Simulated assay, not measured.
Amino acid sequence: MQPTLVAVAHGSRDPRALHTVRALLDRVRELRPVLDVRLGHIELNRPLLGDTLQEVSGAAVLVPLLLGRGHHVKRDLPASAARAAHLRIRVAAPLGPHPLLVEALYDRLVEAGWAPGTAVVLAAAGSRDPDSAADTRRSAELLSERLGGVPVVPAYASATAPTVPDAVRALAARGHHRVAVASYFTAPGRFAAQCAAAAPGPAAAPLGAHPGLARLVLLRYDHAAAAAREALVPSCRPAGQRAGQPVPAGA
């Protein structure tokens, strides 16, 4: 049996967020109809992750609908997995950075009216975790490449600097007076709206149910599920055999 895919959203008081996440998971189910796909939230929305895990049996892969290696991915999700002692759980990598994510960002910018040569602020939630900031910077670098080399500056709604207005001013000081804002959020919410409101030009919508994002959710799931299977193989290997080596026939 395949492990259940449990998509983990942050949660938001914005009613559009839950609708958006459900639409994304509908796309995931269309791509993989035989896979059991569930939803759990870290906070603010139901179902909460702990409640979802209580309804799952056997094995599960938690796929964070989050874009970097922040506190939720490093602490909250492993803690939730540890509390679900009846399950074998693997936590997948966050969605970012990845080329599929960059394609979704590109499409949302074009939909919003981005024109070639326009600099971009990549607006993210923000985290004090340096790995999360590194992931956002890497996504900004990949997006800059996808946009033909125009500057893409990361900015944040909370926890760290620069803010979106500060990033816009910094670009203007470098001679870039046409600036668009890319939304580094999976769903609508307070931070996404705050960043969009600070845009001096086009403001892209959150990534939402973009087809590339659905494919990326499944890719993260597949990698984590494969790692979980690999972790079970050593008990079947002859002594001294390394991970990755095939098990001889009859062993």
Rank of each mutant, 00 (worst) to 15 (best):
V102L: 06
G240F: 05
G70I: 12
L65R: 12
A140W: 11
V37Q: 04
W114L: 07
V56T: 10
P206R: 00
D131K: 13
A119N: 06
V150H: 12
G189L: 03
V63D: 02
K74P: 12
G208T: 02
V217H: 08
R32H: 13
H41K: 09
A157S: 09
A182H: 09
A205M: 13
P78N: 01
D222R: 14
V91H: 00
G212S: 11
V150D: 07
A85W: 00
P94G: 05
S139V: 09
P165A: 13
R174L: 14
R88G: 10
G58K: 05
G11T: 01
D76W: 01
P94S: 01
E141A: 11
G96R: 04
L44Q: 12
V6S: 09
F185T: 03
S139F: 05
S144H: 10
R237A: 01
R22I: 05
V217G: 11
R88N: 08
R83A: 15
L218K: 13
R174F: 03
P151W: 02
A104M: 10
R22Y: 08
M1V: 14
V110Y: 14
L18T: 13
G250M: 02
G208V: 08
R69Y: 12
V150G: 10
P211T: 00
A198L: 06
L219S: 13
V63R: 14
G240A: 01
A231I: 06
A112K: 09
P99I: 02
L218Y: 03
P234S: 01
L25I: 10
L213D: 12
L65E: 10
G148W: 00
E141V: 12
H71I: 14
S235I: 03
D222K: 05
T186E: 04
E145L: 11
L62F: 10
A228L: 13
V120I: 00
R174W: 10
A155V: 08
A198I: 04
G113M: 13
Y184E: 02
S127E: 04
Y184A: 06
L87W: 00
V6R: 12
D36T: 13
V102M: 08
S57H: 12
L101D: 14
Y221M: 02
R69C: 14
H86L: 03
A172C: 04
A84C: 02
S132V: 09
I89A: 03
R13V: 04
G70P: 15
A115E: 15
T136R: 08
G40Q: 06
A249D: 11
A157I: 09
V34T: 15
L67R: 04
A196D: 04
R22G: 08
A198Q: 07
A251G: 01
A155L: 05
A187M: 00
G175P: 00
A228H: 01
L100V: 09
P188F: 00
G68I: 09
E55G: 14
P162K: 03
L35F: 03
A84P: 02
L142D: 09
A92F: 05
V56H: 03
P116H: 00
Q245I: 04
A205T: 07
I89T: 06
V168I: 11
V247E: 01
V56Q: 06
V34Q: 15
P211F: 03
R190M: 11
L216P: 14
P130I: 06
P94V: 06
G149C: 01
G189Y: 05
A224E: 05
D51K: 15
A133R: 15
V153R: 07
R29P: 10
H72D: 14
D166A: 15
